[in-house]
Design a protein around this nucleic acid. Structure first.
Lengths: 204, 204
DNA sequence: TGTGGACTGGACTGTCCAGTCTAACAGGAG
DNA sequence: CTCCTGTTAGACTGGACAGTCCAGTCCACA
């Protein structure tokens, strides 16, 4: 009945977490515990051996997702445009990709039930990303590659431009962009940002 | 038992819609029909006299909310900054205000159940706003007050900057800005946008 | 005075689901 | 061989909830 090639007595906890991630992302918190156990190929009791309650399981899943959304940003200020393009590409994948959207939807819907979770998600995800980007931009400002302004403000503007309206659309079920349109748009956005934050001209 | 000053047999339908709006926005689709009826001060059967099912009621509420989020934008291109400030202030209220956020959360969580609703919300809300703003910017471009670029792209950038990260934060339960900080931030954003889309300098 | 339509309170059905309980099974350690 | 631990299938409890049904009330209108 079980897939035969499956290692018997494999780490149920891990399988449960994986299954729960899938199911919660797909159906939100209201996914049933039975379905999660079934998807993990595990008895319901086993689930309750590992996690005291559905809420705790949901929390674990949320923590895992939160940990996975951070976007790396190399500190290299020598070519700001290039660095921002690399960063932006990854950021947009996290932000506008199906998994990211599903996770966000699932979490957002339960802000009332799990306010602490939502706060943690925001602090360790978007807010953390904004802080890192702000640091990067501050260095770029010090180097004169970017006009001086509040670095956090600048970071928020870039993040808004990168995500903004498209995110709303995707959350409402609109389809995403094709690969080449995506690259074009990313470049367009970054250039637009760099224009807004171009260093003041000395007026030759 | 009922509030005595209440007009008897008042329009139950209206009271139901109002109550349902409140309750759905507060608890999402999973709010119970009983609670809605109770909040409307009406028997459950009365609710089912007016709406054939909970889904239909939810749909009506969503349509009402969708209709209320459009932001007016006067066509006056003579002072672009002033117009954008007015527009931005209203937009931010809709986007970052408690009601707007609650409505968005409730809808987003049910994209899977009501894909058509979500699509309609997006088309008549954010997308429509972007179209109008794009028209406005196009006129400003023709007049030379704004650098030429794809007007829809420009509109999306401004909307992203106006909403962007803060919206995510608010959706995660972060508090909003105080009134004066709000005004400052709005001006900062609009000026930043105008810098990105300043007409090309002739270099005197 | 009587009739009809809308409303009320509350009981009721069927469904779904979190969480518990039980009895049985498998494998490793002593 | 026997305990022990983790597992399994499935029955079960208690509660929530959508939607139905009904018996009775209130009111407008004729």
């Amino acid at each position: 009945m079980k897939p035969p090639s499956e290692i018997p007595h494999a780490d149920s906890r891990q399988r449960l977490l994986d299954a729960a991630t899938d199911v919660f992302m797909e159906e939100g918190y209201h996914a049933s515990v039975d379905r999660i156990a079934a998807k993990a190929g595990v008895a319901k009791q086993t689930l309750y051996n590992h996690f005291p309650s559905k809420d705790v399981l949901f929390g674990e899943v949320a923590r895992r997702c939160t940990a996975s959304i951070l976007v790396p940003l190399d500190g290299d200020v020598s070519d700001v445009r290039e660095s921002l393009l690399r960063f932006g590409a990854l950021f947009r994948v996290k932000l506008l990709g199906d998994e990211g959207l599903a996770a966000f939807r699932a979490l957002i819907a339960e802000v009332g039930r799990f306010p602490a979770l939502a706060r943690a998600f925001y602090d360790n995800g978007p807010a953390q990303t904004a802080r890192r980007l702000a640091e990067f931009l501050e260095r770029a400002m010090q180097k004169g590659a970017v006009r001086r302004d509040d670095p956090m403000f600048a970071a928020q503007m870039l993040l808004g431009m990168l995500g903004g309206v498209e995110r709303t659309g995707r959350l409402c079920g609109q389809p995403g962009l094709a690969a080449e349109a995506e690259a074009q748009r990313l470049a367009h956005i970054v250039d637009c940002f760099l224009l807004a934050f171009a260093p003041e001209r000395i007026d030759r």
